[in-house]
Design a protein around this nucleic acid. Structure first.
Lengths: 253, 253
DNA sequence: GATGGTCAGATGGTCAGACCAGTTACAGAA
DNA sequence: TTCTGTAACTGGTCTGACCATCTGACCATC
């Protein structure tokens, strides 16, 4: 018996539930095993006890054990494969990245999300160029110059220009050499690409964007944090003025 | 039969697996249902089809359906309760907060995590005070003054001083009125508390911290973003110099 | 001694059926 | 019209089973 279409009438916003959600059997198991992992009883790379052993040890069904293992895997603590026992995995950057991406999408989809997110982006990018201006080595400035040149060469081709635009910003971020900042940039990379694809359709926008990048580059090269931040802020504000007011916020994945 | 202690010999870092993990049955179901939710086929608040209906519809066992539902719930897309069908829930801020907290813990636990995270914190807090200095209303400045006074009154009591210290920083952040920034602060709040509990044991540190807060307050009151950022930077650098070099990074939860 | 093939045992993945506890809707009585 | 009891539907957990995958031991060959 299928129930497609069932109960899909328009409903008002759901009233908050008042019953307390009862704790489930496998949740206790999740807590115990997560704590064992945290305490190093199962170091990274070690296998966990098998499902059948855990069901014996905790006196629950194998299904309950499997639900706990699934929860641990969804938290990124373990990974399972057929035929071998689950293994503890260290917190993986790619897992965190996907979580950050989901968080980014969440905020973008909220009312005013574009503004909210844009504000944070400005805060991060102006802070990043400050640090870049303080720290850039001669080699890094050469690398940045190459990115800038590629950006210039791409004028006229919306797709490639957008790509080199992002690569320029990423190269600035990489000067700071901070994994959290790099993760932030990667988390929003696809969304930024889509935003630029839209923005760059404006007449003459590639020239304007390139000119802003050139000024940012000069400020970093000159070792002027305040100037670099100011130029980045002007650049982002200009982008905000041409970006459509209320576009559909697109998911980066 | 238990297997405690089994296979726990020291092992080198595990070599990355090369076998391709086979796609599981319930993963297809997760994709389909997640897409239905994204497309609005099941709006927020609507119940999903029952487990028994989904097993009929997709020709899989009820256990496989339950695994898919568990995965959707761990992604924060639905919530389940005994006796009623699972319901779609909108992305919840608390869910995102816990994800940000996990990300924060991840980066803190990496080698050099304290430095990496401190750098990002400085970037965020200096950016936030700049915006606060630009935007603070008279009412907000009064509120901030009250937080500062509470901070001053707490000198001598490590616990309360730490609490008021964080409240001062949070009040600055709230001037910016950006939910992402507020979430960031809340995500690292408990960890910050623990850090301060350690820092404030240093002789005279409460007086130093209060004095820095007072200078930050004056800069915000004077509407001087550059000065506010500079005072915040000095404050955070001073904290970094007295904080133990390689403490155990503690989980905020 | 190194290598390749085979096999048994251990493992996870999925299934079917069952039972229990919680929730909801409906029919009948007051 | 309202209230109550009950049936139906729901999720949570269990047991036993079978299938596919992986690993280690063993043996034959070079």
């Amino acid at each position: 018996m299928t129930s497609q279409g069932q109960d899909r009438a328009q409903a008002p916003a759901p009233r908050e539930r008042r019953t307390v959600r009862r704790r489930r059997m496998h949740e206790d198991l999740v807590d115990v095993l997560a704590e064992d992992i945290r305490q190093g009883i199962y170091p990274v790379g070690d296998p966990l006890p098998s499902e059948r052993c855990l069901m014996d040890e905790f006196g629950v069904s194998r299904l309950t054990v499997r639900e706990a293992m699934a929860a641990l895997e969804s938290h990124g603590l373990i990974e399972t494969r057929p035929g071998t026992r689950a293994r503890v995995c260290g917190p993986r950057a790619d897992f965190l990245l996907s979580m950050l991406s989901q968080a980014a999408v969440f905020y973008l989809q909220q009312p005013g999300g574009l503004h909210t997110f844009g504000e944070v982006r400005e805060l991060v990018e102006t802070g990043v160029v400050r640090l870049a201006a303080e720290r850039a080595t001669a080699t890094q400035i050469e690398e940045l110059a190459a990115r800038l040149q590629a950006n210039r060469d791409a004028i006229g081709d919306t797709k490639i220009f957008g790509q080199t635009d992002i690569e320029f910003h990423l190269a600035v971020a990489q000067i700071v050499d901070n994994p959290i900042i790099s993760s932030f940039f990667r988390a929003v990379e696809q969304w930024l690409q889509e935003v630029r694809d839209i923005s760059l359709r404006n007449e003459g926008q590639m020239d304007i964007a390139y000119a802003a990048h050139a000024r940012i580059f000069e400020a970093i090269k000159a070792g002027s944090p305040d100037l670099a931040a100011q130029e980045m802020r002007v650049h982002l504000h200009q982008l905000a003025t041409i970006y459509p007011r209320n576009p559909d916020a697109k998911s980066p994945f």
